[in-house]
């Protein structure tokens, strides 16, 4: 994470978002089980190297905003067998998120 000047951020804490349901041909670290799913932004966690371009030999610059997003386990899994209050946290780049109204 860099300590560079505060970036212009698309999302903030508490925003309702969904993960884009796409499968680009390039390397990406957004697992299938959260694609298209709705969650809530917990926080902006910093600017991080873009692993999607770095994986293809690029420098991974510029760094991109990353957010910690919380999902309800009952929303992710049909018939989730455990506690209804359970959550899943995952850190996602801004370009994978879209605002829900």
């Amino acid at each position: 994470m860099s300590a560079a000047a505060a970036p212009k951020l698309e999302f903030s804490q508490g925003d309702r978002v969904h993960v884009k349901d796409m499968t680009p041909a390039n390397h990406h670290r957004t697992p299938w089980y959260i694609k298209g799913r709705r969650g809530v932004v917990l926080e902006f966690i910093g600017m991080y190297v873009n692993s999607e371009t770095r994986a293809h030999g690029d420098s991974g610059m510029p760094e991109l905003p990353m957010y910690r997003v919380e999902f309800e386990q009952t929303h992710l899994w049909f018939d989730y067998p455990e506690s209804q209050s359970d959550k899943l946290w995952i850190d996602l780049y801004e370009h994978w998120l879209e605002r829900d109204e």
């Binding site: 919380e70 959550k87 946290w89």
Partner: peptide, 8 residues
């Protein structure tokens, strides 16, 4: 509350 944290 369980919070499963998926690393990247």
């Amino acid at each position: 509350e369980v919070r499963v944290v998926d690393s990247n």
